[in-house]
Simulated scan of single mutants.
Amino acid sequence: MRRLLCLFALITVSLSPSALAQSAFDTRASHAVILDFETGDVLFSKNGDEAMPPASMSKLMTALMVFEALEDGRFELDTSLPVSENAWRRGGAASGSSTMFLDVNSRAEVGDLIRGIIVQSGNDACIVVAEALGGTEENFAQMMTERAHELGLESASFANATGWPDPDHRISALDLARLARHIIETYPQYYDIYSETEFTYNGIRQYNRNPLLGVFDGADGLKTGHTEESGYGLVASAERDGERRIVVFNGMESNRARADESERLMRAAFSEFSTVELVEAGEVLGEAEIYLGVAPSVELRAADSLSFGLHRRDRDGISAELVYEGPLHAPVQEGDVVGQIEVTLPDGREMSVPVEAAQSVARKGAMGRAGAAFARLIRGG
């Protein structure tokens, strides 16, 4: 029999279907995620796991590939790379796309190309480093995808280095947030570039499109994106009072709407969301009946900790149950996994944590088992 023990002290036991389907917080963006940097907990998600067209936000992955090449010695900051006619034609001003204004058949240093990618969102700069690292942009895109999967970004599928529209160029908002977290954590020596508000190359000054820089206190990265297919999007991060949040959203209808929503979401990330620890590893949550055991029951404890991010008004809308198949049959060893905690959040997220026996319980001897069997027969069990 499947047994359910409700965690009365921690949760509301039951919810209506409508309550489970809607969080107290929402956004006009089609996809959005708020991530706590320190814990990696998702504070808010709207279609966050759904692969979407990221536009130039995918240049985070292009830049990461360059950072890794710098780390392993394939590049130095002053390494000079050739600008092919392909990079110039497909990524230059004539293409009508974001550009660093590189000259055809010239050479550019990696340090400048990084700023061309990050600050200016230059497609030409992306193609130059792609051809240098992968031979062709197509090969480099495959390298990007493989590396993303190695990092656990399973939704990622890259068709190019720039974010140019392609049905095979996709990544989820959640994986973009995780990618941003990895860059901030792993490459602090390069992350400062994301906060630079302008960069001049070939005598042409261009400004960082991130609408939070200089507007939201503590904002210091990362990358905008826009195509007709994706709408206007942003991967952003900010730090306040020792806490850092990462916000990703996409699908806004205009540059102005993106700017407004970026400030609203980032402000909410700090003032309206926090991490909730529902249970700690080893915490005793209840007990389960044992059949034919020398003790009638055994305490059940959480095998792992369970924490998650939540809007402050959603705390009363958590549904959690301690589930096991019972009664348990002796013998039971301490640490045996016998069930799980099943949790549903108001925004639809579901998660679980294994539950284990907190003590060992031996099986009764022959006389004890006979007595138990007789008692069960009388009860009609």
Rank of each mutant, 00 (worst) to 15 (best):
A24K: 06
A24D: 12
A24H: 03
A24I: 11
A24F: 10
F25V: 00
F25L: 06
D26Y: 10
D26V: 12
T27C: 10
T27K: 02
T27S: 12
T27E: 15
R28K: 10
R28W: 15
A29Q: 09
A29E: 07
A29C: 13
S30H: 11
S30G: 13
S30M: 07
A32H: 10
V33R: 00
V33N: 00
I34G: 08
I34A: 04
I34F: 02
I34K: 08
L35I: 10
L35F: 10
L35A: 09
L35K: 08
D36N: 12
D36I: 06
D36S: 09
D36A: 04
D36Y: 11
F37H: 05
F37P: 01
F37K: 02
E38M: 14
E38G: 15
E38R: 13
E38A: 15
E38N: 14
T39C: 13
T39R: 15
G40W: 04
G40Y: 07
G40H: 09
G40M: 02
G40F: 05
D41V: 14
D41K: 13
D41F: 14
V42Y: 01
V42I: 03
L43W: 00
L43D: 10
L43M: 04
L43R: 03
L43G: 03
L43F: 01
L43K: 07
L43S: 01
F44G: 06
K46L: 07
K46R: 10
N47M: 14
N47D: 15
N47Q: 14
N47V: 14
G48P: 01
G48N: 06
G48V: 08
D49C: 08
D49H: 15
D49W: 14
E50F: 01
E50W: 06
A51M: 11
A51N: 15
A51E: 12
M52P: 05
M52S: 01
M52C: 10
P53R: 02
P53T: 10
P54S: 01
P54K: 05
P54W: 00
P54D: 06
A55R: 15
A55L: 10
A55S: 12
S56N: 06
M57V: 05
M57L: 11
M57F: 09
S58M: 02
S58H: 03
S58F: 01
K59R: 14
K59Q: 10
K59T: 05
K59W: 08
K59I: 00
L60A: 11
M61K: 00
T62K: 02
T62E: 05
T62C: 00
A63V: 02
L64K: 07
L64D: 04
L64P: 04
L64C: 02
M65T: 03
M65C: 02
M65V: 04
M65Y: 00
M65I: 02
V66H: 02
V66P: 04
F67G: 11
F67W: 13
F67M: 13
F67Y: 12
E68M: 01
E68W: 07
E68P: 06
E68Y: 09
A69V: 01
A69F: 05
A69Q: 08
A69P: 04
L70K: 01
L70C: 05
L70D: 08
E71L: 12
E71G: 08
E71D: 13
D72M: 12
D72S: 11
D72I: 14
D72K: 09
D72G: 10
G73R: 00
G73S: 09
G73K: 01
G73I: 07
R74I: 02
R74A: 05
